[in-house]
Simulated scan of single mutants.
Amino acid sequence: MTLQLPSEIVVERFLPTLRVRLAAALDDRGMTQQEIADRLGVTQASVSNYVGGGVEGEKRFLEDERFEATVERVAEGFADGTMDDYEAIAELLELIRAFEDRGPICAIHETEVPALRGLGCDLCIRGRDADLRAERTAIESVRRAARAATNAPALVDHVPNVGTNIATARPDAADELDVAAIPGRVHAMHGRINVPSDPELGASEHVAGMVLAAMDVDASMRGAINLATSEAVLAAARERGIDPIEFEAGYEDRRRRLAAAFEERGSVPRIVYHTGAFGIEPITYVLGETAVEAVSLAAELVGDGDGE
């Protein structure tokens, strides 16, 4: 693991980029290199290097409209005397806070510290708290489940044409943004399960919706994977004493309808399926307390189904 603080990114990447761009903006407004150096707190030689193209700066800052707007505002204030150093620092600190809140600083931090990837991290804004730990736990559950899926060859033949997703919700999940899943879904490619990217919060709609409906009735049922509906898998479930529940394929008000069906049954079943509709592929959802548990059950069921 690489330990790097966001403040290091500010000092090592944001500040040099800011100086390069601000020096150029002040130069365009007719200030001398020594005047610019005094404003920026650097040497005249450094300013000469900045305006001469000797330092390029970080593209992720330079391409952000907020960065350019702040630079222009500060440069104009310095040039016409309407902004002092205190006001300029206030403008720049506000920009840094915005960039730390899922902005370019956050993106660079995520690249430099792989443990943060996929967390939708706002550690700089929230600090260390229970919410962040819950997010990490959900994401790690999906990561482990995806790894298990790639090691279950029998699942390949049961991946729907639209793809599979694997999900685990936070314990207090309210909507899809609280459910970790695989962006872009999981697909069968060349006889193998292909997981295109690391799990993230908010990366699923339909599998997440199924999990949320289950949690409306049983808060412990926080994991799921979807498969193509097949009689073999449904039969394998029944042989294990699992009684699947069927529902209509339409998407309208699906969460409410599913929760009502679970309430009527008195529990959340491990297998929930539909047989499709116009433009909707038949899908079976395998549920569990986590994504790992759901994938484990799915792998057992497709193994039984393929063996018949």
Rank of each mutant, 00 (worst) to 15 (best):
L26H: 00
R66N: 08
A214D: 02
G191R: 14
Y273I: 00
G288S: 09
V20Y: 11
R256N: 15
F278E: 15
I283P: 04
R222M: 08
H274Y: 10
I225H: 01
G57V: 09
E300S: 12
G30R: 07
G305M: 02
S296M: 05
G288L: 02
R144Q: 13
V217P: 04
E65D: 14
R257D: 13
G276Q: 03
A203G: 08
T284S: 14
N226K: 11
R240C: 10
P171S: 11
D157V: 00
G279R: 14
Q34N: 14
R256M: 13
N151G: 15
L301V: 11
H206M: 10
H274L: 07
T290R: 03
E87N: 11
A138L: 04
T284F: 07
G250V: 07
E205R: 12
P16K: 10
E63P: 01
G191Q: 12
T150E: 15
C106H: 04
L287Y: 04
F67Y: 09
G241A: 03
V162G: 03
D218T: 09
T70Q: 06
V179T: 03
P282S: 01
G209F: 02
A249W: 02
A152S: 15
D131V: 14
T284R: 04
D306L: 13
D27R: 09
N226R: 11
G127S: 10
V217I: 15
D253Y: 05
L93A: 11
T137L: 14
E65L: 14
G307H: 13
D84Q: 14
E264T: 14
E308W: 10
L227W: 07
R133P: 00
V186Q: 09
N151W: 12
L123K: 01
A146L: 03
A208G: 15
T2D: 14
